[in-house]
Design a protein around this nucleic acid. Sequence first.
DNA 1: TTGCGAGCATTAGACCTCTAACATAGATTC
DNA 2: GAATCTATGTTAGAGGTCTAATGCTCGCAA
Lengths: 145, 145
Amino acid sequence: MTSMPPEERIGSHVKRAEQALVGAKNAALKPAGVTVPQYAALLWLAEKPGISAAALARLCGVTPPTMNTVLKNLQERGWIERSPHEWHRNVLETRLTAEGRLVMELADAAAVRVERALAAAFSAEEREQLIALLGRAADVLDAQR
Amino acid sequence: MTSMPPEERIGSHVKRAEQALVGAKNAALKPAGVTVPQYAALLWLAEKPGISAAALARLCGVTPPTMNTVLKNLQERGWIERSPHEWHRNVLETRLTAEGRLVMELADAAAVRVERALAAAFSAEEREQLIALLGRAADVLDAQR
DNA sequence: TTGCGAGCATTAGACCTCTAACATAGATTC
DNA sequence: GAATCTATGTTAGAGGTCTAATGCTCGCAA
């Protein structure tokens, strides 16, 4: 009585790939002691020191309260610092600490290994196709809302 | 100083598509009052009445404690029932209630609308390609662990 | 100058997710 | 019959995610 079998639902396959991706990345990042969202934040922080939490949230594709949670955990571990902005007193500038940078580099090496293994499963043409198809899917779904 | 730009990371594109998918599905399911994981559980329960929580977890691609959380919320709303198995006393059989079936059908209609809109963005050949490429990605990533 | 709108930060509450650990019951094997 | 194996269920704890609501600061405009 189900109106559409799971195998025909493109969403099922996207979800499965995403689950495998998060699983592989989490396993790879475990030695560095960071989660996937923590790694994403550290990576952007290395590229944009002093960024605001809201802007960082946009880059990482999450909401500000979510980023707040992630940053709280990063700060507890001493991997980031937050200080008030010179002019805009309501803005907090966030930066990596020295230890945070080390952790980021360790995590990045592991994450890149996973990405390279994934990329190696495809030809250059297939990679382009996959990325193009995924981009079109994301656009259609965003427009759907 | 980053070793691999985000656009070249296939994972970035998979993640973005998955986020758009969950966003669109959550928006579509909101009128029915269910979340995406709740909908997935209700859908499988309609097809396999009396299934165990562990088996349901496998079908939905989550761990048993996660499914436990989802089922607890579904039970609080009166959409499922759980009763001890006749022989295996340690197993709880889970079934939809009448109201749960109605909610599932309402949610399913909305979810299928999203899937059809997504599928409409591709030709038959493109759909097959996308599914095949995603499947290969998932296999490679699972093997990576 | 006073107000208003935009952007940032935060809190509260609900939900999902995992790993780790433990308990239980049934089946298999020695 | 006893030990072991396998599958199920559950609890505990940490972390991530969202929406909704609140408060703050700044800049701009009436």
